[in-house]
């Protein structure tokens, strides 16, 4: 066990965590933040993507104890009350999901793209950058559209 202090969606959290606990399991089981999903559990699918210190990472390939002193953001931390985040809104408006399982990871990866590319984010870059996120419903068309729309709104 290691005592770890981190911020999750802006809130300071201190807990004793078993050393081998994956970040995704800590978030889902201990913190009940079940918007972060487990898809493949082998760092392929991107359903578990969260931000650590603002960067998108796969929370199935990181230990919770590695988050000492860090800021973790999950899908639950994006909206402000009833107001969806611009990227969430874009996914909603573009119908960028069907079953929704991949969506939290998609949105957090999309925000990492915007962080690095800003409004210049074009379709080819989005498609290339999406290689770490798998969607088995949509065929990606509307996801790409939503990320472009979200990027433009955020950077406007």
């Amino acid at each position: 066990m290691t005592c770890v202090t981190m911020r999750i969606n802006g809130e300071a959290v201190t807990e004793d965590i078993e050393d081998r606990t994956l970040l995704v399991d800590f978030l889902r089981v201990r913190r009940r933040l079940t918007g972060t999903h487990v898809g493949c559990d082998t760092s392929q699918c991107g359903a578990c993507v969260v931000h650590v210190d603002g960067e998108a990472i796969k929370s199935c390939a990181m230990l919770a104890v590695q988050c000492e002193g860090r800021e973790v953001t999950t899908i639950e931390g994006l909206a402000e009350g009833e107001n969806l985040h611009a990227m969430q809104k874009a996914f909603h408006e573009c119908h960028a999901l069907q079953c929704g399982f991949c969506t939290p990871g998609m949105i957090l990866s999309a925000l990492d793209m915007v962080r690095r590319h800003g409004a210049a984010l074009d379709e080819a870059t989005i498609r290339h950058e999406l290689e770490g996120n798998i969607c088995r419903c949509t065929g990606y068309e509307n996801i790409v559209k939503a990320i472009r729309q979200g990027a433009q709104e955020i950077s406007a």
Binding site: S43, G46, V49, E55, A56, I57, K58, A61, M62, S109, D112, M113, E129, E131, G132
Partner: peptide, 9 residues
């Protein structure tokens, strides 16, 4: 190398 998320770690 890998994908964007892997490159961040």
């Amino acid at each position: 190398i890998g994908d964007a998320q892997v490159r961040n770690r």
